[in-house]
Design a protein around this nucleic acid. Structure first.
Lengths: 211, 211
DNA sequence: CACTATACGGAACGATCGTTCCGTTTGTCA
DNA sequence: TGACAAACGGAACGATCGTTCCGTATAGTG
């Protein structure tokens, strides 16, 4: 499984036929991306496009000249971040203590997700149908993370009856609570609770059920 | 702390001046409530009002004659259910094993919430500002639940560094994951994980942090 | 049966939001 | 500097959704 490469942003933007964007167009494009980063980071994908345009000091028309769709703009903001997460997960698979590596990563992910609501929405969309490329990326991330999980399970540190998808659900859930309140390090603690619950040898609660 | 009493639904509806609603009005009112129960239960409060009216075989105008606002209709559906939960929590405070009583209740709550999305939305709204009476009710529930929690903490079964609000966040989070998928007993398992994480003597993860 | 207060239905309104369209402005290049 | 393609701005469109309004239907009553 390979993560498809994306053009590594920035630097003068080239058109398909080797010509460059006009100077004002390049400047506006960057402004729009910065504004989107800020606005979507704060309010998530539910923020109105007009707000991004206003923040960028640009008309909506201009925004749509650069990005064919709100979703495309959102992706432009978020795909790189997702790739970074995937890379980090893949790197952690080398780490010593498999169990703690897994939990550390969950914690780190939770922190970024609480800080940047666009990331949250991108990962939360993974469950939904959606046509976005963010969903694909979220799937990759899930697979990378699942390697961490499996290693932790093999090492005997993590229970094996909870799928990676379910773990993501728990972590996202812990973070979604955080989203509406006066943020602090609450998310950290809640994810800590989730991690403790994922450890082996603690299931005194009934785990089987009738029907 | 007392839970304010609500008129116990059903039976011929009386107007303020001791006169009764017309027969067709009573029939429609009931139909609307049934439809709302079904529609809001399936899609949560985000379901359009028109859908409820259609399901009830009634015009929107009629719906609004009976309930001044969508929110009022939603409340009419959900407040009783919330009161039932509160009563159940208050009853469980008598139970023998404080810790298991607490966890059992969380599990039961999770089951109802995954089954009925209107309940989920009502409880999820508790964090938000909102003006709804559902929020008040959710607060009552939280207080009742906190008594269960405190008892479990005192009994030494549950960690004391997580507030009831945070526990609710975790449980809601575990359930919100469930909402989009092919439902099974996943919620049960996830809440089980959360409960295990809430038990004492398991925090090998760092719990303090700088700043 | 006739009469009227009561209730009904659904078209229409207003707000929000994504997206499109087009008249105007501006960067670029000869 | 003049001309034109490129880009801009923002009004306007269409869809969704909560809510209102008013002409019509009907239950209740004598």
């Amino acid at each position: 499984m390979q993560v498809p490469q994306r053009d590594a942003a920035e630097t003068p933007i080239e058109l398909a036929d080797h010509r460059q964007l006009r100077a004002d167009a390049q400047r506006n494009r960057r402004r729009i991306l910065e504004a989107a980063e800020e606005v979507f980071g704060r309010d998530g994908i539910s923020a109105p496009v007009d707000l991004v345009a206003e923040r960028a000091g640009v008309g909506v028309g201009t925004l749509y000249r650069h990005f064919p769709t709100k979703e495309a703009l959102f992706e432009a903001i978020v795909l790189d971040k997702l790739d970074d997460l995937i890379a980090a997960a893949d790197a952690d698979v080398e780490k010593g203590d498999a169990t703690e590596a897994f939990f550390d990563f969950l914690l780190r992910m939770a922190e970024e997700v609480t800080l940047k609501h666009d990331l949250f929405d991108a990962l939360a969309a993974a469950g939904i149908d959606f046509k976005s490329r963010c969903v694909d990326r979220a799937q990759y991330l899930k697979q990378s993370l699942d390697r961490l999980r499996q290693r932790a399970v093999d090492a005997g540190g993590v229970r094996d009856d909870v799928t990676m998808e379910q773990v993501m659900g728990l972590v996202m859930g812990a973070c979604s609570f955080e989203r509406s309140g006066v943020s602090d390090d609450v998310a950290r603690r809640l994810v800590g609770v989730v991690c403790d619950g994922l450890r082996t040898g603690r299931s005194t609660h009934q785990s089987s059920n009738g029907a």
